[in-house]
Design a protein around this nucleic acid. Structure first.
Length: 309
DNA sequence: GCTTAGGGCAGTAAGGGGTG
DNA sequence: CACCCCTTACTGCCCTAAGC
């Protein structure tokens, strides 16, 4: 028996006849005429190559083959009905869905604690898997469904992706507590004299800070290059080196924060998703959760203190 | 895009078997 | 034997594919 040649409605008829043990009552339940049920039963008999139900007095008794089939059929129908009921709905309280998010460590460090804290309350069954951002492959991964969301400053423009800003951050200079410059004004000369850490996922090329300094005809003294911010902060806290990092991230460490002594570098974090997920209730719900975490991030920044110069 | 032919399914009507 | 109820034959409707 191949399923593509079988009308799956026949299994609903099978289940109803089994429950009612009577074709006339089954027809009333199914809201079709009795001969229609009889014809459906004839097709079921041809499909299963078994009488399935035989008349014993005034009832239709199931054959051993029907007895064997009814369990799996009823289980399959239950699953189908549950799927139909769930279609187009998303209940965060009961969902077991896993969301895959590609992002850099900076946005993960800023967004995830707040996002996950909120999810543990509103959606305890939901899982979040964060993946390292590969900007070149991110659009393809979104299109294939391997990844649900990408958080990045800028993705190559594609018509099949949608994006909305989450929060805007700006770069600041980070020093350890007790650093010789901790209580001094950070001038451009003093900044250029520091040993710097460059955080970049790329193996070569200038960072945002050196691009800005380049416009002034200057260059920082970069002595360490790392792919993530977390090791950079730990090195800063143990040495007299400095790192230029997003303010919202710097605030999470016990460090001295100074405004950069040149043109401000802003960073617009954007949430990207594929257009095919536009109307997916689960995707809509998660987008709102991420955007809400971004809003809370902005509000907490406004509430907190000024940065030194 | 329209027409037509064919297949599948449900409905009606009639027939027939089983039961009380 | 009357009644219940299943099966069968026939009909009409709908959908799909092929041809133009």
């Amino acid at each position: 028996m191949t399923l593509n040649n079988v009308d799956l409605n026949l299994f609903v008829v099978f289940d109803t006849i089994y429950s009612e043990r009577n074709l006339t009552r089954a027809s009333e339940v199914l809201n079709i005429t009795q001969p229609a049920v009889s014809n459906a039963l004839a097709r079921l008999r041809a499909t299963f190559d078994d009488p399935l139900f035989v008349r014993t007095g005034r009832t239709m008794s199931p054959t051993p083959a029907a007895q064997n089939a009814i369990g799996p059929v009823q289980q399959a129908l239950r699953q189908l009905r549950a799927s139909v009921d769930q279609f187009g709905r998303f209940d965060p309280q009961t969902s077991q869905r896993t969301f895959h998010i590609c992002q850099r460590d900076a946005s993960a460090l800023v967004l995830m604690p707040d996002l996950i804290k909120a999810l543990r309350v509103s959606a305890p069954g939901i899982r979040v898997h964060c993946h390292q951002l590969d900007r070149a492959h991110a659009p393809v991964e979104l299109a294939s469904g391997q990844v649900d969301f990408v958080v990045d400053t800028l993705l190559p423009h594609r018509g099949d992706l949608n994006g909305t800003p989450i929060y805007t951050d700006r770069y600041v200079c980070v020093l350890r507590k007790g650093h010789p410059l901790a209580s001094k004004m950070l001038t451009l000369e003093r900044y250029l004299a520091l040993d710097h850490i460059l955080v970049s996922g790329r193996r070569r090329g200038r960072g945002l800070v050196d691009i800005a300094l380049g416009r002034l005809g200057k260059q920082s003294n970069t002595v360490l290059r790392v792919p993530h911010f977390q090791p950079a902060f730990h090195v800063v806290m143990e040495t007299d080196m400095s790192v230029s990092a997003p303010l919202s991230l710097a605030r999470r460490y016990d460090v001295i924060i100074k405004e950069l002594p040149f043109e401000p570098i802003t960073l617009d974090s954007t949430l990207y998703w594929h257009k095919k997920a536009d109307l997916d209730p689960a995707s809509i719900w998660m987008r709102n959760q991420i955007l809400a975490a971004g809003r809370r991030q902005r509000q907490s920044k406004l509430r907190r203190a000024q940065v030194g110069s």
